[in-house]
Design a protein around this nucleic acid. Structure first.
Lengths: 203, 203, 203, 203
DNA sequence: CGTTAACCGAGACGGTACGTCACGTCTTAAA
DNA sequence: TTTAAGACGTGACGTACCGTCTCGGTTAACG
């Protein structure tokens, strides 16, 4: 995306102001008009930019959206820090999931995030970028917290942390994307408890 | 969908052949050209049908797609039957998940299902219909199998079966939709085992 | 143009109102903004019509312009009648040429006619149509008047009437198109006299 | 054109090689792609020149084209010499007109000349320049030949030589521009004869 | 058992957006 | 300071579909 072409020596004299305006406009528009009505033409108009300036630097609408998220995620204080680690894994996870739910329910992020997910699901290249730049770092944080718990003996020693992450966050995201049910704090708690204890009866 | 208008008394004289042609064409097209390039004009052309015939009976492209899936699901032997119940819950779940994975990896179903999910995530009305007609029945089957295991003491007595279903199928679907990783039989097994035993160490 | 496609049986159900609006708009616009800034987009907007409606029925901007002239020329009293024939050839020709000059100098027709000539000079297909539908009939009228004079012994018996027409009207049109000089009534008279008498001294 | 800005004292340090490359490219391109598709970008690319270099020195596409013709006309042996004067006016004129026809029919000059005419017809400023630098000198040559004939008593004494020139060359150019008919040697002869003798019967 | 109203295919229509091309202006780095 | 290079805001291109609207032709229920 951001690095679509890497010229041998002369850096592409790219207008940073236009770039930011485009990404900001894209994010604002998708939350206002929704994914289906998001258009490159609209983004360009809102950003006060020529369409060609978008086509010059991004290969698709989804790529713009992706970079918009990237820009957001790179703002200071947006989550580069680690997850809470009070020693109480269950409480920490519940807190994080409740926060996630709040974000997913926030109308400012709901539509944009659905849009991003839609683009990813239909564009493997974008998905790879997503895995590398957005999901990857976040997943590392999650796994970091779990590893800490594992070291403390609170998680099974042979646990596959990737599966563990999926088990905790997967149900949530799936319910959100498929609108299978409401995302409530209670649901978050329930998922955490069940995931930690497993479906089988504990002796 | 199918029942968009309720005629006073005379049943709407609807051409069943056209209806089937439209749904078949929609399903075929979405798997051929992908979600982004699926168009009502294209469906109409492929089905040998006037555009108006589509607009007359369906409110949106997503609704057509939904009905296409509905038609498929109502064909005999497409899953109305119960899930396998050999008494060995873990084995049964692994088998079902492996089958699911195979379907998701099948190029004939991959694109159409992603398309359906996209429509659902952006259209609450469609999502409600989905919950009622497609996901609901399937979820009942899943819960049925789990209930049977619960009765046999293989699952915790106070287990929320909806959460349980999410815990088992959510990770899979989420990985598929977000393309976070490959869907392999090993992954299916891993998810089932981890869900059943939980993340915590068993004594 | 007007007859771009001739379907076997079902006449193309074409919107006559749109057609007239397009032609009227095209003619009005070319005289307002000039040939260089005449755009299909502009015509469509002015006519209150979708662009596709223009592209559906005309292959080029020039074709629209041509049909606009055709429409004008087919209005009653626009010249289907014969040229004046008072018996005095010289006077009649001078009158006609003076009228022509007045039209060419009329700002309402100047730009549109230059535009039409430009299209014709760069598009042989359009030129053929022009020869058949616009120039041809007019040329017949001119030749008719000359033939009448020829019969009266006022013109050489072996005169090639096509060359004669060119000799009378060619200088005028050429001076107008190339802007080689002003088009004045005196110039018209001069051309007529010189053409009739020839360059050589009369005995 | 060439002298768009008048520098206070130091002559504009203008790259002559670029200038020639631009004019050559313009002429070559217009004959290859035609007037409609001739673009400044294309000329710059073909000439290996920055766009700004064109905009700095020429106000319009037509001006470039005009200068391209000017460059051609200033090459040695391109017609600064007088018209043939064998004493036989009719033969001389026929020879000249036949040569003109050959040039107009030459695909290397057809498109460029049509393009130049188009620019002139839509741009009075360019037309004035044309009258002064290209058409003017040529017209003087023509009038020179006619004056010589007039002195010899072969042309009417009171003949307006400008009208005479128009009468001889106008029909030809008009037929060419409007594509009213083919330009053949026979047509050239016919025009010359008719112009010399006039339309009226000679006693 | 004909009438008639709805449905059907076809596709024209006013629109919106697409992705591309060229415009004329501008900025940059090298000569 | 000019130049080659090319990014930029602008606007038109010609195309694809949108959802609405006729148009004849067919078809099934009613009168």
């Amino acid at each position: 995306m951001t690095t679509q072409r890497k010229p041998p020596s002369p850096a592409p004299r790219r207008n940073e102001a236009s770039r930011r305006a485009i990404l900001t406009a894209a994010f604002a528009l998708v939350q206002e008009v929704g994914y289906a009505k998001l258009s490159i033409e609209g983004i360009a108009a809102r950003a006060g930019v020529g369409k060609q300036t978008i086509y010059r630097w991004w290969p698709s609408k989804g790529a713009v959206l992706f970079d918009a998220f990237l820009m957001l995620s790179e703002q200071p204080g947006s989550g580069d820090s680690a997850l809470p680690d009070t020693g109480d894994l269950e409480a920490d996870l519940k807190a994080v999931l409740r926060a996630t739910i709040e974000e997913l329910n926030d109308p400012r992020y709901d539509e944009p995030m659905r849009a991003l997910n839609t683009e990813i699901t239909h564009d493997p290249a974008l998905a790879a970028l997503y895995a590398e730049r957005l999901d990857g770092p976040m997943r590392e944080l999650k796994k970091g917290r779990l590893r800490s718990a594992q070291r403390a003996g609170q998680l099974a020693g042979d646990l596959d942390l990737d599966v563990a992450v999926d088990l905790i966050w997967g149900p949530l995201l799936n319910r959100w994307l498929q609108r299978t049910g409401a995302l409530t704090p209670g649901y978050a708690d329930s998922v955490v408890e069940t995931a930690l204890n497993g479906l089988r009866p504990r002796p």
